[in-house]
């Protein structure tokens, strides 16, 4: 994942957006939209719910721009923390909705390789979604978004040691689910 030290700065864009400059807001939104969406998608297992999370995060930023303090964290960290809070709230409220981005394996004639890849993706998705939310968020941020342990610690608001511990437990569970032979061999 790229860092967001781009020009113009997030801070300048946010100030202009708060003054009613829609173009500035669009640049800011497009800069951070994808990471929030991917994170929320992998946390919630639902495209619709992930889009709601992204929408609500940016809306909250527009309504309370003063809540973002550039001295404390980057805007990406701030938005990821907001998305994380919303995703956890939704996770606690109810189960995930149907996933719709993977095509049905029983559809029209498809190459065998594509079917195998889809099946792999499903297995991996199910294994990640089966993790407890506090382990899942760490896995998603480290393994998929490739954030540093320090940034993950700021987002989930825990010590780096606790991030490492959750990540280790999550990896053990994922290896057991996805690479049982390798897990057996390591014992």
């Amino acid at each position: 994942m790229k860092d967001s030290a781009e020009d113009p700065s997030d801070r300048a864009l946010l100030a202009r957006a708060a003054q009613g400059e829609e173009d500035a807001f669009v640049v800011l939104y497009e800069r951070h939209r994808d990471v929030l969406f991917r994170f929320a998608c992998r946390m919630l297992g639902s495209i619709d719910a992930a889009e709601d999370v992204v929408h609500d995060c940016f809306l909250s930023l527009l309504r309370h721009p003063q809540a973002f303090d550039p001295a404390r964290a980057s805007l990406r960290t701030y938005l990821c923390a907001a998305a994380r809070n919303q995703a956890l709230k939704r996770t606690l409220q109810g189960g995930r909705e149907a996933w719709s981005d993977l095509p049905d394996a029983g559809g029209p004639a498809r190459a065998l390789q594509v079917l195998i890849e889809d099946e792999d993706a499903r297995r991996i998705r199910d294994a990640v979604l089966a993790l407890p939310p506090l382990q899942r968020e760490v896995v998603v941020l480290v393994e998929y978004e490739e954030l540093s342990l320090a940034e993950v610690a700021r987002i989930v608001d825990i010590e780096i040691g606790a991030v490492k511990s959750r990540l280790h437990r999550a990896r053990v569970s994922l290896r057991a689910a996805l690479m049982p032979e390798a897990e057996e061999g390591s014992r």
């Binding site: 939209r33 994808d34 969406f37 991917r38 998608c41 992998r42 495209i47 992930a50 889009e51 992204v54 981005d101 890849e117 792999d120 993706a121 991996i124 998705r125 990640v128 896995v139 393994e143 998929y144 990896r171 994922l174 290896r175 996805l178 690479m179």
Partner: peptide
């Protein structure tokens, strides 16, 4: 594990 996990891709919104 990282290589395996990367097979689950998420499209853009």
């Amino acid at each position: 594990l990282h290589a395996l996990l990367s097979r689950w891709k998420v499209e853009a919104p």
